[in-house]
Computed example of a mutant assay.
Amino acid sequence: MDKAKLEKYKDKLLHLRSEILNGGILRKNEDLTVSTDDLADEADLANNVINQQVSFNMRTRELTKLRAIELALERIEDGTYGHCEECDEEIAAKRLDNQPWADLCITHAEEREREEQRFKRVG
């Protein structure tokens, strides 16, 4: 990958990392606590638990994405960015444009997704 493209992806990754870190979703705590007022009413408590689960899932997704971004930035530094970790083939530019933290070519990404789905059904 040429230096200009690499710099473009690095800038994009840094921007995405900044959005996650400054977006507030990782710092917001009020929806992770249960108010004593909600304990008296089962409907309020159920609603609170649902909201907590949604918030927890959003945080988990953002933290996973943040970790993938950090790893992509490390790959840029060590010269392995843009190559599939399974087959070492170059990852398509269209894929990197949409998901600059991608570490697998589309073939191996789909394979991983099928394995994860199979694991979820078994587990």
Results as ranks from 00 to 15, higher is better:
residue 5 K to S: 12
residue 8 K to A: 08
residue 9 Y to D: 00
residue 9 Y to M: 11
residue 11 D to E: 15
residue 11 D to T: 14
residue 12 K to F: 02
residue 14 L to V: 07
residue 14 L to R: 09
residue 14 L to Y: 06
residue 15 H to I: 15
residue 16 L to G: 05
residue 16 L to V: 11
residue 17 R to K: 15
residue 19 E to T: 08
residue 20 I to C: 06
residue 21 L to W: 08
residue 23 G to Q: 11
residue 24 G to I: 10
residue 24 G to A: 13
residue 25 I to K: 13
residue 25 I to E: 13
residue 26 L to H: 06
residue 26 L to V: 03
residue 26 L to R: 05
residue 28 K to L: 12
residue 28 K to P: 01
residue 30 E to G: 05
residue 33 T to I: 09
residue 35 S to M: 01
residue 36 T to Q: 11
residue 38 D to Q: 02
residue 38 D to R: 03
residue 39 L to I: 06
residue 40 A to F: 09
residue 42 E to P: 14
residue 42 E to S: 14
residue 44 D to L: 12
residue 44 D to I: 06
residue 45 L to K: 02
residue 45 L to I: 04
residue 46 A to V: 02
residue 47 N to E: 15
residue 48 N to V: 05
residue 49 V to W: 08
residue 50 I to E: 15
residue 52 Q to R: 12
residue 56 F to V: 03
residue 57 N to D: 15
residue 58 M to W: 07
residue 59 R to G: 12
residue 60 T to C: 10
residue 61 R to I: 07
residue 62 E to T: 07
residue 62 E to K: 09
residue 64 T to E: 15
residue 65 K to I: 07
residue 66 L to H: 00
residue 66 L to T: 02
residue 67 R to D: 01
residue 68 A to L: 05
residue 69 I to Q: 06
residue 70 E to R: 12
residue 71 L to Q: 14
residue 75 R to G: 03
residue 76 I to W: 01
residue 76 I to M: 02
residue 78 D to V: 04
residue 80 T to P: 01
residue 80 T to A: 06
residue 81 Y to E: 00
residue 82 G to T: 00
residue 84 C to Q: 09
residue 86 E to C: 06
residue 86 E to T: 09
residue 87 C to R: 01
residue 91 I to K: 03
residue 93 A to V: 00
residue 93 A to F: 07
residue 93 A to H: 04
residue 94 K to I: 03
residue 96 L to W: 08
residue 99 Q to H: 05
residue 99 Q to E: 07
residue 100 P to A: 06
residue 100 P to G: 04
residue 102 A to L: 04
residue 103 D to K: 01
residue 104 L to G: 09
residue 104 L to T: 04
residue 104 L to N: 06
residue 104 L to H: 09
residue 108 H to W: 10
residue 108 H to S: 10
residue 108 H to Q: 10
residue 110 E to F: 01
residue 111 E to A: 11
residue 111 E to V: 06
residue 113 E to N: 10
residue 114 R to H: 15
residue 116 E to W: 00
residue 116 E to A: 12
residue 117 Q to V: 07
residue 118 R to K: 14
residue 118 R to Y: 05
residue 118 R to D: 13
residue 119 F to P: 01
residue 123 G to L: 10
